[in-house]
């Protein structure tokens, strides 16, 4: 096996999990590949080998048709045991939309999802306020920065019990919240009824992150914005920094 020097540029390796019914897998894959210094490959949900990966993406979509409950079946896919072990070993895992729902169902993130308060699917651009820019997924943003990222979901109404809420707030696990143009977390700016306008949370260790909005959809000006790039840049930087520190 060749041993590469630390200074050599090794691309940061992303794996995008494909469950039956995933439909943002290609978008995530393409978004990652738009970054110099990053590479992506697909992982079939029956794979169990995550060897060589730096970050696993659980993409959006309707895994298993969202039958039973969003994410409830996908969490039993063979790959999820491997993803759990990967996270336990400190690997970075990000779940977007349906991927977030799967992480909740798998117990890898705290909380649960209700149907949207309006009981309808909602697809639109929303404002997010970055609450914690100290985790590997958000260092590319300023704390309190307002970014525009689209949502597209029917079940994105985040819920957690009072004790759980206090805990995630205290641990800096609330990463992004829905807000208005000025960064105020108003009721009107909450598109789905989420508790505390919470749009994304991470685990206690800060290496597993889930959010309902789709950063992969706003990585190019031509399709309406670039505010999502910060998420991928942050991951790439975090992996690079870790490698450099080794």
């Amino acid at each position: 096996m060749a041993i590469s020097s630390q200074t050599e540029v090794t691309p940061v390796r992303f794996g995008v999990v494909v469950f039956p019914g995933s439909n943002c897998d290609a978008d995530s894959h393409d978004a990652v590949r738009s970054f110099a210094g990053a590479d992506a490959r697909y992982l079939w949900h029956k794979d169990t080998d995550l060897g060589g990966l730096d970050c696993v993406i659980l993409p959006g979509g309707f895994s298993y048709g969202d039958y039973l409950r969003c994410g409830a079946i996908a969490r039993f896919s063979p790959i999820m045991n491997a993803v759990q072990r990967f996270a336990d070993d400190g690997g970075l895992v990000i779940g977007i939309c349906n991927g977030f729902q799967i992480l909740l169902e798998a117990g890898m993130l705290p909380g649960a999802m209700h149907q949207n308060e309006g009981l309808k699917f909602v697809c639109k651009l929303v404002n997010l306020r970055v609450e914690n820019n100290g985790i590997p997924f958000t260092t590319g943003y300023e704390r309190g920065q307002v970014i525009k990222v689209p949502i597209a979901h029917h079940e994105g109404n985040y819920f957690i019990d009072q004790a759980g809420l206090a805990e995630i707030e205290a641990n800096g696990q609330v990463v992004v919240r829905y807000c208005d143009d000025e960064g105020e977390t108003t009721e009107a700016s909450n598109p789905n009824g989420s508790l505390g306008n919470i749009a994304g949370v991470c685990n206690r260790e800060h290496n597993v992150f889930g959010l309902m909005p789709h950063p992969e959809r706003v990585c190019e000006e031509i399709v309406g914005g670039t505010d999502g790039r910060g998420v991928f840049e942050s991951i790439i930087n975090a992996v690079g920094a870790k490698a450099a520190a080794r």
Partner: peptide, 27 residues
Amino acid sequence: VYEQYDHMVQTNNAIWPGAESAVLRIK
């Protein structure tokens, strides 16, 4: 109507709904 449709998946929208017509870039 169109906010109930996922109109952005596949990330090709050069023009979003509500305009004269939709335009999709080809990656």
